[in-house]
Amino acid sequence: MSENIYSQRKMRNESLKKNDFLEFLKKEAVLIIALLLAVISCFIARPKLSYIDFKVLILLFNLMIVVEAFKELKILDSIAIGLLKKCSSYKAISTALVFITFLAAMVVTNDVALLTFVPLTIVIARKANIDVLKIVIFQTLGANLGSSFTPMGNPQNLFIYSYFKLNPLDFFIITGPVLLLSVLFLLFLISRDKKANLSIELEDVKVGNKNHICIFSALFLIILLSVFHLVDYKLTLIITIVTMLFLNKSLFSKVDFSLLLTFIGFFIFVGNISTLDSVKLFMENILGSGKSTFIASLLSSQVISNVPATMLLSGFTTHVKELLLGVNIGGMGTLIASLASVISYKIYSSEFEVDNNRYLKMFTYYNLVGLLIMTTIVYFIL
């Protein structure tokens, strides 16, 4: 009897471990692929420490730390609730939620914007008894499109900005037209929504320690200055670490180290294969012109996501403008084109599991429409 119980427990534990392992593989698929590629490429060429762009890693680390602080202090939540209290119709709420996500993504990244505002959207859906599937999809579009405007909006922008040593003006000249197209596209989508009146009672969000808000806001300004090359990024790292040690050590555990390791994996992989003449010649032929770089970055984003696509292509092209436009516009399309899109899908599907298929169909429809419109316009402008 006891042997049977022991055997059943052992099988149950093994099953749980297997499920945990499978969940880990699904969650960290990009990281695992990056590290595998790095290891395999080390048998082809000898890796060098110089392949790793520590400036990008440090800038990412600094941004992730301060954004986590803002999340804990509930600053964005408070702003959103204050804005939503002034909305009295479905269309007004839709506009507010989509554009606050759009604007927030420019500053705190598309991932954080969606992690903050999609759950808020679902809370509103429960209170008002409305279907917010389209709003969540538009928020996802808004986060990906809004984040494309600034260097710190998403990891691929920060990488391109630092790797190619762009100055702020050049960067914004490239991304400005995409911003304008994005606003027009989102307004068009929202304008087709219903105009039903709504009345929602929302509770105020209590923000964290006001002194901490002031300090972290000052730190965020310093980090932004380091992104724009006005303050040394190494000094900023020291200031960031010291601030965290004094105010909130727990924030270190919330940093997305898997993303940093993913970057390291791709740095090593791209650095190693770049030493092979055959690979270098092949890639340079594919990326020989601006338009081919644009199309290659856009298409590869659909398959492997835009952050890995950026890192794989950047070492073989000098067409910075086209690469930047391609990977950002390429964030639309498939669900994995931008990994931020997976975040909103998971949040929504965990609350409305029966709507999974409807979500995927509608998500794909609106993303493909946006991808087609923007690709066509940008391609003929290039």
Score class of each variant (00 low, 15 high):
F70H: 02
I190G: 11
K234H: 15
I174F: 06
N367T: 00
S292P: 01
T310S: 04
R9Q: 09
F257Q: 13
A92Q: 15
Y359L: 11
V255M: 08
S94T: 10
L260F: 11
L186A: 04
F24N: 06
D111H: 02
S2W: 08
A96E: 08
S191V: 06
A96P: 12
E3F: 06
A38I: 03
S305F: 03
G208D: 02
D232R: 04
Y359I: 11
K10A: 08
P308N: 07
E284V: 05
D77F: 05
A337F: 04
F380S: 09
A92N: 13
L247V: 10
A104L: 10
L287H: 01
I44H: 05
L325M: 15
I81D: 06
V178N: 12
M106N: 06
F171M: 11
Y161R: 06
L158M: 13
L179T: 03
L221M: 12
I329R: 00
K17N: 11
L260C: 06
N197R: 15
L63G: 06
L371H: 03
L339H: 07
L115Q: 07
F61K: 06
A296T: 08
K91V: 05
K18S: 13
L221G: 06
T364P: 00
M244R: 04
D77M: 10
A296M: 02
R358H: 09
P177S: 09
F263D: 01
S300Q: 08
A143K: 00
S297P: 09
A196G: 15
I329T: 05
L141W: 01
L368G: 04
A105Y: 00
A104W: 00
I135A: 02
R9P: 12
L59W: 01
L202Q: 09
F246L: 15
I52A: 05
S148F: 11
L57V: 10
L25W: 05
L181S: 01
F99E: 07
T375Q: 03
I223F: 03
L198I: 14
L145W: 10
M1F: 14
V67T: 14
F159L: 05
I174E: 04
Q302F: 00
K165D: 15
S250Q: 15
I268E: 09
T334A: 08
I381R: 11
N272R: 04
Y163S: 12
D204C: 10
L115V: 07
K280T: 10
H212V: 09
I93T: 02
L251C: 07
I100S: 06
L120Y: 05
L169C: 05
T175M: 12
L141Y: 00
M332G: 06
F228A: 09
F188Y: 14
A218L: 15
H319F: 07
V112P: 07
